[in-house]
Simulated assay, not measured.
Amino acid sequence: MRTAVVTDSAAALPADWVTDFAADGRLTVVPMPVMVGAEIYGEGEDDITDTIAVALATGTPVKTSRPSPGQFEQAYLAALRRGFEAVVSVHISGALSGTADSARLAATRVGIPVEVVDSKTVGMALGMGVQSAVVAAADGRPAAEVRAFAEDRMARTKVYFYVPSLEQLRRGGRIGAAASLWGTMFAIKPILAVDDGKIVPLEKVRSAARAVARLEEIVVADAAARPAGQARLAVHHFGNPGEAAELAGRLAAALPEVPPAQISSLPAVLAAHAGLGVLAVIVGESSTPQKEPPLVR
Rank of each mutant, 00 (worst) to 15 (best):
V163Y: 03
G123Q: 07
V159S: 02
P259C: 06
R210I: 09
R170Q: 08
A15V: 11
M1Q: 14
T49G: 11
A12E: 05
A225L: 07
D16R: 14
A106D: 04
H236Y: 08
G173P: 00
S286Y: 11
T49K: 10
D195G: 06
A213N: 12
P241F: 13
V30H: 06
E45H: 12
V135A: 15
M1Y: 12
P33K: 09
A261M: 07
R153T: 15
Q230N: 11
L80S: 14
V269E: 00
S132L: 09
P267I: 04
I263S: 01
T288F: 11
V54G: 10
G37R: 10
A208G: 06
L192E: 00
D50H: 14
A133R: 00
P113W: 09
T49F: 14
K198Y: 05
I40V: 15
P142D: 12
S9W: 07
A150K: 03
A177W: 14
E292P: 09
A11C: 11
D16M: 09
A268I: 07
T184F: 11
L181E: 09
A143D: 03
D222S: 07
F21R: 15
D8K: 08
E85P: 09
V116E: 03
A274P: 02
M124I: 14
Q168V: 09
T19Y: 05
V117K: 02
A100T: 12
D222A: 11
P227E: 06
A137R: 04
L13F: 06
Q131S: 04
S165G: 10
D139G: 11
T28G: 04
V163I: 15
T28K: 08
